[in-house]
Write a protein that binds this DNA or RNA. Structure first.
Lengths: 337, 337
DNA sequence: ATTGAGTGTCGAAGCGCTTCGACAACCTAT
DNA sequence: ATAGGTTGTCGAAGCGCTTCGACACTCAAT
């Protein structure tokens, strides 16, 4: 293993000079710098991460806590994780992958050991037990998702309230009066992951303003669950012509069942999905949808963190404005409805 | 930040004693150990990761390189990543998430800087440019996937050759004579990710032995691509009654199109999928499938690595035997075929 | 010529831990 | 009683880096 000292010797300068060339924290003459850089290249030098962390009390690592569950939004999680990793590298950070399994202990361990300089938490629950720890540590952190109280925290999320409102507005504009919302699995609501509830709230209050009727049904993914859910919906509200779906694994079953029942999309019923674009365009009907901006969220989170680590930036809640893309699954409400 | 020295003082022992209590590398009397452990708890001590890494030249971190692409097998990747993280924690390691983006440089950086003690590489290509580096470093590594030459490397993968054979055997036993294979996107074959080709080889050679005819067609996911692919297949081989699908995002389109064409599954045609169980059970027809043992692969990889880091274990190729689960998508070939 | 402010470089201390050799203290076998 | 082996603890060195203060030098302004 090549050390800084060896580079220094090879370049005929002192160790501190090499260090300053590397960090740029003091000015170095062009000739010296070039000589040092040349030596670094020739010897294939890489600074030792541990030594650097010890001396500077900076690990240049960002911890990312992902949920252990794979019951929902897997591609979204993955996309966020990749965006985080990519953005972090741009800023000179690496990413440590933690699963939710350890819970609050992971937060203690990471902050206590100086393993990471900052953390990103995904899948935050409304009353998350990790939050008190984050508030009392001085290590910067960003949540992806919104807890009940955001005081003293930085959060990034899609504005799910506005998303719900946007979906219902689109349907209202097309003349639909009876809307069914097919939501996440009941477990997601019970767990009090905020986004599902916020979507619903935003959707309901806008629907009230517009005079629409809304029926909400949580739904496990898959065909069997969807069959039951759909039957209940049409049973209770036969006049339903608009659907909002917030559950990736319910999208395709819904389309298949509607087709099977002889209800054409978008002629008889319209469907708006809240899902990644990839899902929307690969579905059997190209779906009008509000995209979940996974990449943007990941990138935002890292950039906030880096700003905080550089002494810039402050606590704030960033809600990304939803964008609805009209595709082939929505159209005017049928005349007689 | 509490340091080891403070713990030592609090417990009335020397720093080295505390260190030995922590590592267990020398015997410590029960009374001393308990006193030290008590102090650790009271002070909320966590060893500093950087200092530890510097002194021991062990970071207790395993690097995981995941592909940047999200064009295939996302849930599988995620499941592997989570299994890796979970298993690693059990053995006292953390996981550093690297994206393929940096390519070979990431390998150099990580091994050079001592950031990680070992690496796991996913999505290995047949002639992967990272392999020479892995061979010449003395840092342990495990590949998930199989390159062209495995000499000097440790690999874990599903036995895709046997998987292909198993699928075709199952269909043969049910009396199917004309088999169509719907594969990954052409890009996957061009990239020379080995698994797709190995599946095909295993499938073809077993089909030859059994006297079956095989038609292979790569396929992008989605409905449009599937429509074209399926048309070509029935055009070329109208008597096709058995399908093997190795492409998650082609599964549902295939089922929908078959249904639409009035071909019943499994009465008229049988479908075997190579996909995660979750996809198989959530499809519109519960699919007979060979599961991709993501968890097992992740766990295996980490345990191999840990064994190597402990001086046990050696280079070897572990091929996990495929298991076919019969569900509702396969049945006897129709009489007249 | 003399001061003062920059500029570029160096030496040394120290970050918090591991680990090696040393050394008491004790026990057992002679 | 004494040598020899165990067992438990300590002190000190050192891992490879960052960073602070010091210092020599140059250059403009007086």
């Amino acid at each position: 293993m090549v050390t800084l000292a060896e580079v220094a010797q090879h370049a005929g300068v002192s160790a501190s000079t090499v260090s300053y060339v590397l960090s740029g924290k003091r000015s170095i003459s062009t000739t010296t710098r070039q000589r040092v850089e040349q030596s670094i290249r020739e010897l294939g030098y890489h600074p030792n991460a541990g030594a650097r962390a010890l001396a500077s009390s900076r690990s240049n690592i960002i911890a990312l806590m992902i949920p252990l569950r794979t019951d929902m939004y897997v591609p979204v999680m993955m996309e966020i994780a990749i965006a985080v990793a990519t953005t972090a590298r741009i800023h000179g950070y690496d990413v440590l992958l933690l699963t939710g399994e350890e819970g609050p202990d992971a937060v203690r361990r990471v902050t206590g050991s100086g393993l990471a300089d900052a953390m990103i938490l995904m899948d935050v629950e409304l009353e998350d037990e990790r939050l008190p720890l984050l508030r009392q540590t001085d290590q910067p952190s960003v949540l992806i998702g919104l807890p009940a109280s955001t005081s003293g925290l930085t959060c990034v999320d899609l504005d799910f309230g506005a998303t719900g409102a946007l979906c219902v507005e689109h349907l209202a504009k097309l003349g639909h009066r009876d809307i069914a919302v097919i939501g996440e699995a009941p477990a997601v609501y019970e767990r009090h992951t905020g986004f599902a509830e916020r979507t619903l709230d935003g959707l309901r209050s806008r629907a009230r303003e517009l005079g629409l009727r809304v029926l909400h049904r949580p739904c496990e993914g898959g065909y069997d669950a969807m069959t039951a859910t759909l039957a209940r919906i049409f049973d209770e509200r036969p006049g339903t012509t608009g659907f909002v779906v917030q559950n990736e694994s319910a999208v395709e079953p819904l389309l298949a069942l509607l087709r099977q029942q002889g209800r054409a999309v978008p002629e008889d019923v319209s469907v708006v999905a809240i899902c990644p674009d990839q899902v929307a365009v690969q579905a059997s009907v190209r779906l009008t949808s509000v995209a979940i901006p996974a990449q943007e969220m990941g990138r935002h989170a890292v950039e906030h963190l880096v700003a905080k680590l550089d002494g810039r930036g402050s606590d704030e809640v960033v809600l990304i404005a939803p964008e609805l893309t009209v595709r082939a699954s929505t159209g005017p409400a049928p005349a007689g409805s």
